[in-house]
């Protein structure tokens, strides 16, 4: 049982990191950024590229090298998020919401198959792998690497929480989320703040990509698709637009999948997890922490 919980928490923290980007963007400009999962993929490939170029140097440094790579990948995917917003979303900010949804789907395909042109269709294997001897803790097999990855995820999430609740930028973000027009009248540079939101959300997805690549080892150009869907689900469970909700939602989904697989088998896992989701949303349409999202007229 503890093993189940641990597996669920570990997968859930990946979902949560990716879900944060979804929820931030939705919370501020009410846009479902379907290309978000592909920024996760982009992060994994940037990390792979940097590690391959660094070669033996990186293998020698191990974990430290991965931390440096993590930061580089976050900067690159963050910039990619900025570009994405500038090219595909900003010109359509006043257009009907459906149009933006379609450009988001288009952006997703463009990133996926663009990466296929660059890196080829075959899966790649990370040159530096995080693997260690597991320690038995209350019946669960836990490795130091797993714990450090979760710690990094928690640090990133805590940093985000501080940024949104404790800084000027964060206050501007929250103001825009309440009323973009009024925020503009109050002298907030709306474009700049939205761009920053995209940078942060995309960087978090990129970080998750590098972490997944270095832990699981295999990356390919379509790896962002499934996790994108899962993270979106997590964001909705938690109450879309709510940052703490996204974290909770990610962990909930991870646990549901882990327990569902153990109880009724892998082929029923998604049926179990998503049936639960439907029932839960019927009873509580705003998600776990969704009550703070007020519908604007």
């Amino acid at each position: 049982m503890t093993q189940l919980l641990w597996n669920g928490l570990f997968v859930g923290s990946f979902y949560a990191l990716v879900a944060l980007g979804y929820t931030m963007v939705y919370g501020i400009i009410r846009l479902l950024n379907f290309a978000h999962g592909d920024l996760y993929m982009l992060g994994a490939f940037v990390g792979f590229g940097v590690l391959s170029v660094a070669g033996g140097l990186a293998t020698g440094l191990g974990f430290v090298a991965l931390l440096i790579v993590l930061i580089i990948a976050m900067l690159v995917t963050g910039t990619a998020g900025l570009l994405l917003e500038r090219v595909a979303y900003r010109p359509l900010r006043d257009a009907p919401r459906l149009s933006v949804l379609i450009t988001a789907v288009g952006a997703s395909f463009a990133i996926e198959y663009g990466m296929r042109l660059v890196a080829g269709p075959n899966p790649e294997v990370y040159p530096v792998r995080l693997a260690g001897d597991p320690v038995n803790l209350l019946g669960a097999r836990i490795t130091v690497q797993q714990v450090s990855l979760i710690l990094i995820a928690i640090l990133l999430m805590a940093g985000l929480q501080w940024l949104v609740m404790g800084t000027e930028t964060g206050r501007a973000m929250r103001a825009i989320s309440q009323d973009p027009t009024a925020a503009l009248y109050m002298g907030i540079n709306v474009d700049a703040v939205i761009a920053r939101t995209f940078f942060i959300g995309s960087a978090l997805a990129g970080a998750a990509g590098v972490m997944a690549g270095s832990y699981y080892g295999k990356i390919d150009f379509l790896m962002g698709f499934v996790i994108g869907l899962k993270a979106f689900t997590a964001a909705v469970i938690g109450g879309i637009g709510n940052i703490k909700g996204a974290m909770l939602g990610g962990l909930t989904l991870g646990l549901l999948e882990s327990i569902g697989t153990a109880w009724i088998g892998g082929q029923w896992r998604d049926v179990f997890a998503f049936t639960f989701l439907i029932i839960f949303l019927t009873l509580r349409p705003t998600g776990i922490l969704g009550e703070r999202v007020t519908e604007r007229v």
Partner: peptide, 14 residues
């Protein structure tokens, strides 16, 4: 298992 994912620890556990 569902193809295209990274984490199969739940399936492995089962």
């Amino acid at each position: 298992v569902t193809a295209g994912e990274s984490d199969y620890s739940a399936n492995v556990n089962a």
